[in-house]
Every structure is written in structure tokens, then in C-alpha cells.
Amino acid sequence: MSRLLMFLLLVGLMATTTLASASSGQDQPDFQGPPPDPASLYAENCASCHGERGEGRVGPAFVLLDDHSDDEIYHTIAEGRPERGMPAWEARLTPEEISALVGYLRTLAAQAQPPAEEEPAPAHAAGADLRLVLTLQEDQVVAHASLRDEQGQPMAGEKVAFALRTTLGGKLNLGTFVTDEEGVATLRYPAGEVPSLTLEASYPPEAGDPIRAVASIDLPAGQEIPPVATGLFSPNPPPIAILLLGLVVGGVWITYVWVAFQLLRILRVR
């Protein structure tokens, strides 16, 4: 089974690369539209209902995918499930593209987090107020996330998730913390040497669309960037080496000048 899947995925990828290299020459009449890159196909056609990572929105998450064979999934995509509102895709996608999508869905399912239990988000989460304040204490950035309900009362004992927003747009989970009786969850994060830090708090952590609070802090220059590890002469030689070299070369040229002076003396003899 997984071999078949891999094969399909492979077919999709091979087709992609072949097309990429072949499209330079002549147009391929067989293919209309983009090559079957499953990731972009998914993003264009499926993500709006099933979520960007297959976590489920209007349509279901893919957690139960393992219970179905590739053929079943293929037919589901091709013919749709009109009773549940899923359109049929065979008119819009080629068989190769659907096959590629099947493989892609499997990888998504494998990566998917265990689904949030049916337990609905706490009723009071809707009107909750989450604030994040960053302060610098010695070498640490202290993040206080204060959580209050709609009445403005601190919410104690709730889980708040913290994440680091990286400089290249990534998000790194830093874990969940429980609010104290004042409704404040606290994270201590080593400041390190970065110029600034952006943290995010979200509540409730399990929800698909939690309340988020983002805060940034500019960090003092602190220590400079660690210097580049260098070889003896790279990128710049030590001044003593330059001095020595200059002395040697300078000595040679001074001798040349002295020789010129001797020539002058020859010229001057009467």
C-alpha cells in the first residue's frame, strides 16, 4: 500500500520535474494548467475547507484517513460527497493530480496532531482578553500573559501556549503555561544575542483559532556578534605581519634608492 502511494507520489513529482525541464522546449498539449505539484494543488483547492495542514475546518480533518484505502480516497476526491457538501473534482483535476493528492493527504495525515477532542472550546474563551507584556530582566526576557474574562476578572488555572516568532517567519512552540490566581502565565526566555524578540501567547492552546497576543521587545546590543573564526591571514593579517612585510619590502626599495644615489654620484664625477 505505502509502496503504491510512494509510487503515485513519485509519478507526481517526476511529472513535475520532467515538465519543468520539458516545458522549455514546446508546450505540452496534454497538460493544461500547472503541473501536479500536490502541495500547491492542495493549497489551491482543498485548504480552504480542510485547513492548511489538513486540520479540518468546514470539511473534516484527515485523521481517519488511515481507515481508508487509496482507491476509496481517490474516488472520494473524484466524485465528491454531495451529501456533505464536498464537490466532485474529476472535472477539474486530472487523474494524475488526484493520485498525487492522495499521496499528499497521507503525508498530511501522518504529520497531523492528534485531533482536538470534541470537547468544545470553553464558553468563556470567546470573550476572554489576553495580553502579553515582555520585560527584560538581566539576561532573560520575561513574558507575562495575563488572561481575563469578559468581566475583566483574572482567569486562573487556564493553559496559555507560548511561541517564538522567528526572524524568518517561523513559529516555534515554547510550551504551555498555567495562569496563576491573578490570571498571569509567565515564561522566562533567555535573551541571547538576538537584536529583538517576538513572542506570541495563545489561548486556549488546543483550539483551532485561539485568541492570540503578540509582543516584541528590542534587546540592547549586548555583546557584539561573535567574530568570524579566522585563519592566520584571513580576513586580515595581524598588524605585526603587515609591519614586517612593509619593513622588508621598504628595505628593498630604500636600497634601490641608494643605488640610484650611487648612479647620481657616477654622473656627478668631474
Binding site: L164, T166, T167, L168, G170, K171, L172, G192, E193, V194
Partner: peptide, 15 residues
């Protein structure tokens, strides 16, 4: 990514 920040990110958004 940034080694000082000690994070790396790829095109899948994995950090």
C-alpha cells in the same frame, strides 16, 4: 534561520 536565535525554518513552516 538565525543561529543566534537558534531557530531554523523551512518551506513547510516547520520551525
Amino acid at each position: 534561520g538565525d543561529e543566534l536565535e537558534d531557530t531554523v525554518t523551512n518551506s513547510w513552516g516547520e520551525t
